[in-house]
């Protein structure tokens, strides 16, 4: 399982990297941590003719936290998120989700930008981006642009990213201190891609009712998505057992899961409800 031949470049500036990506008729690929791309190349499923290594680009490895929210540079590794204690308050949902990503060695190299660009339907980071209405900042030969997470993921391993574009940053909106959130996923083994997962949050108004509910699911369907019918159940209701049961049922009803060797579609449908139920319980906790 040796990779197919390709050229390799390691530019030192973003503009140079974009230029390189644009130079190979759409056959060039950006290389960040390589933890998703290199296995695809080992199976020769991906056969780029040029790899543009982003590791020398400065400024893409930072986690910036401000009143506007959390900005994750594209080269931020899972390990960096895990080790950043500021995120416990600044974005507990992100922190909770990233704890499930892959294994120790992968976490030392896998990056936020790489995961977003890879767009596995069961991956946590794309799920968080969609659930939280993240903005994905990209740079291409036409300049910089911002893509809303909801518009970014087009299908399994398919995104709105142009061949010459590089993800520079993922921007998560500010997180009020009183916000309630929960993340739940279930995989066959630790570190495996989830058969289904739920990332959700809501705010509580003065009367104790939920508002601004965001419910995202991963591992069901071809991309991460928000479940508006579930959010509708939550908004304006107290998050009690009855509401949670209704939300779980709505979640199961709202998804069109696929079948694969690890789980049937019916199982995934049920699991989605269970994950939403448990995430809500931990949020309400």
């Amino acid at each position: 399982m040796k990779m197919p031949p390709f050229e390799y470049a390691c530019p030192t500036s973003l503009s140079e990297a974009v230029k390189l990506l644009a130079s190979h008729d759409g056959e060039a690929k950006a290389l960040a941590g390589g933890q998703s791309l290199l296995p695809m190349m080992a199976f020769r499923v991906a056969q780029p003719t040029l790899l543009v290594d982003l590791r020398k680009l400065s400024g893409l490895g930072e986690i910036k936290i401000s009143a506007d929210g959390v900005r994750l540079g594209a080269l931020v590794r899972w390990r960096d998120i895990e080790d950043d204690d500021r995120l416990d308050a600044a974005h507990p949902l992100l922190k909770a989700a990233i704890a499930h990503v892959a294994h120790y060695q992968i976490r030392n190299r896998g990056t936020v930008g790489g995961s977003i660009a890879h767009a596995d339907p069961a991956a946590e980071m794309p799920g968080i981006a969609v659930a939280c209405d993240a903005e994905i900042a990209v740079m291409g030969k036409a300049g910089a642009r911002i893509i809303k997470a909801a518009d970014f993921f087009l299908g399994a391993l398919t995104t709105a990213l142009q061949p010459d574009e590089i993800i520079t940053e993922v921007r998560l909106p500010a997180w009020p201190a009183s916000r309630r959130s929960g993340f739940q996923e279930f995989a066959r083994r630790r570190g495996d891609f989830a058969m289904a997962g739920a990332a959700l949050f809501y705010d509580l108004d003065k009367s104790g009712k939920a508002s601004n509910a965001h419910v995202g699911v991963i591992g069901v369907g071809d991309r991460p998505r928000r479940l508006k019918p579930v959010e509708a159940v939550l908004n304006g209701s107290a998050i009690d057992e009855a509401t949670i049961a209704k939300a779980a049922a709505a979640a199961s009803a709202a998804v069109e899961p696929q079948e694969d060797i690890h789980a049937s579609a019916a199982y995934r449908r049920s699991l989605t409800g269970t994950m939403v139920e448990r995430a809500l319980k931990s949020a309400a906790g």
Binding site: F186, R188, M195, H262, A263, S264, Y267, S270
Partner: peptide, 8 residues
């Protein structure tokens, strides 16, 4: 005894 099987 996979999750799907037990659930079924």
């Amino acid at each position: 005894l996979s999750p799907t099987y037990i659930w079924e």
